[in-house]
Design a protein around this nucleic acid. Sequence first.
DNA 1: CGTTTTTGACCCGCGC
DNA 2: GCGCGGGTCAAAAACG
Length: 269
Amino acid sequence: MSCSSISDHVLSPQIDVDSGNSSKKIGATDDNNNDATENPCTPNSSVSSSSNEGAADEGSTKSSKKDKLPKGSEDGDDDKSKKVNKPKKEKRQREPRVAFLTKSEIDHLEDGYRWRKYGQKAVKNSPYPRSYYRCTSQKCGVKKRVERSFQDPSVVITTYEGQHNHHLPATLRGNAAMFSPSSLLASSAAAMGPGFPHDFLSQLLPPPSTASNNPAAAGGGGASNNTTNSSLFYQSLAPPNQQQQQQLQVPDYGLLQDLVSSFTHRQAP
DNA sequence: CGTTTTTGACCCGCGC
DNA sequence: GCGCGGGTCAAAAACG
């Protein structure tokens, strides 16, 4: 705590997939303790876990579930007027997901995009609810899940799903301002400009190689479908040095790239 | 007035 | 086959 100067840092990786079993471990990370243990002052201990199972295409988002456009494409379907129904037989593919653990007091961290909350559910093993957000852009089906670690209330777990098809909104509600207060690295933000998840980007980096290296994680439980590549990365707190290197690399994840791209563009208009 | 948040209900997938 | 948990939608309310 002494170092509280920074309100938040990203800490450890999370798992998303879980079906249940693993989920309990969320906090596992908690162990963070370890980290924290003591390193409160660490500049950033961050790790990101990402899972990409299906490599879904961008389009999947919209088509995946239901697009209920009232418009009518199919006016005929009356039947199921009820509500959510999934016309498609295809089971929904999962898009690449990236989870971040951020130490912050605020649940909803500004990342430069505008999000609309569309749901909230209580988490089974946690007293804190999980919030579901969707990018407000119609063309963008990116979703975000935000929940607080039950073991470390100060840690917020943010999971991004999908990738943005558009650049950051020109006019944000003032996220720039929000950054400085207590959201992300002020220094970074300032340097970069208006504000963006530079922090996130930095953290996110899931080198494929790592994944392959970590059978343990995959084997843990989810073995359900990861044949070729493990669906999630689980990086434990690695030495700072390593993390830094990873941060520099840009993975194939569209999300990241997208973010980076956007970010970059913003810098030089 | 437009947009976002809140809340309840519904559906789906998975595990037992 | 049933039950549980997770995820999403939609209507209403709140807010700027």
